[in-house]
Nucleic acid binder design. Structure first.
Lengths: 129, 129
DNA sequence: ATCGGTATTGACAATCATTCTCAATAAGCC
DNA sequence: GGCTTATTGAGAATGATTGTCAATACCGAT
C-alpha cells in the first residue's frame, strides 16, 4: 500500500516550484534551510519514487551527480540541453523509443535502457557567447 | 615535461585491444589479473590523460560509472552496451542522426551533439547472471 | 475517535567510484 | 653514472548514494 506523507509532498512541491534541474543534495539542503526536518535518505527515496511514477525525470550531470526535475508532460521523454547556460527543453522522441527497443532486441539484448540527450547551444548562447 | 611509462602504455594498449567500453575499475582488475602491478589511481590518471589527448572517449553509464573506450577515428556511430560484462556492439543510427539535427534546429539550438547509447543485458548475461 | 498492522521515516553506517596525499621510484637529459 | 622532477602506488579522503533498523505515523478497520 502507498501512503501519503508530508515529506513526499514537500519534495514534490519543491520540485514543481523550482522548474530547473536540481541535485538531491541541494534540494535537501534547501528544505532544511526552510526549517524542514526531512532526512537526506528520504529526499532520495521521494525523488526516485517520483521518477518511477513519471512525475519527475532524472539525468546525470557531467560531474556524475543525478539531477532531478519535475516533469511537465507525462510519460517518458528526452532533453535538449544547452551546454553553455544549462537551459533545458523537453523533446518528444517517439521514434527513438521504438528504435532503441528494436535495435536491442535484434542484438539479443534484454532490459534496454537508453541515454538519448542532445547537447547544443541555445538561441541566446549562440548569439552572445 | 611528459614522460612515457610502461603503465600508460599498458592502459593504452589494453583499451585498443578491447575496443569495447570499459570502466576504470574493471580495466584495473583485468590488468592486475594479467599480472600487472599497476595501481588503480594510475589507471584513472592514464585514462583521463587519454581522453584529454583525444585518444579515448568517455561516457557515463546509467549506474553512474564512467566508461572509456579507445577512439575509433572512423566515422560517427552509437553503441549497444552490456551493463554486466561491458560487451559493446556498434549500431547504425542514421534515423537518429537526422532526428537529432532536426529537433535541435526546431528549438533554435545550434552545434548539436548528441549522446545516444542503449544499455542492456547481452545474450550471455541475460542467461547466466 | 481510537486501535493496530505496516509503510515510511531519519540518523547513521556502509558502499562505491573517484580523487588526493606523499614518500618512493624511475624517465629523460647532462 | 648522477641529477632533476614527473610519475607511481598504497592508502586515506571525499562525496554521492544506498542500506539498516528502531521509532514513528498513516490509514483502513473497529
Amino acid at each position: 500500500m502507498k501512503r501519503n506523507t508530508w515529506q513526499r509532498e514537500a519534495v514534490r512541491t519543491a520540485l514543481n516550484e523550482r522548474g530547473d534541474f536540481i541535485s538531491a543534495q541541494k534540494l535537501h539542503t534547501e528544505l532544511k534551510a526552510e526549517g524542514s526536518t526531512i532526512g537526506l535518505a528520504t529526499v532520495y527515496r521521494a525523488l526516485t519514487d517520483l521518477v518511477t511514477a513519471d512525475e519527475a525525470d532524472a539525468l546525470q550531470s557531467p560531474e556524475g551527480e543525478n539531477l532531478y526535475r519535475a516533469c511537465s508532460s507525462d510519460g517518458h521523454h528526452h532533453h535538449l540541453i544547452c551546454r553553455q547556460c544549462g537551459h533545458t527543453e523537453e523533446i518528444e522522441a517517439e521514434a527513438v523509443e521504438s528504435w532503441a527497443a528494436k535495435v536491442a532486441a535484434e542484438h539479443g539484448f534484454t532490459q534496454p535502457r537508453h541515454v538519448v540527450d542532445v547537447f547544443g547551444l541555445c538561441r541566446e548562447c549562440t548569439l552572445s557567447p
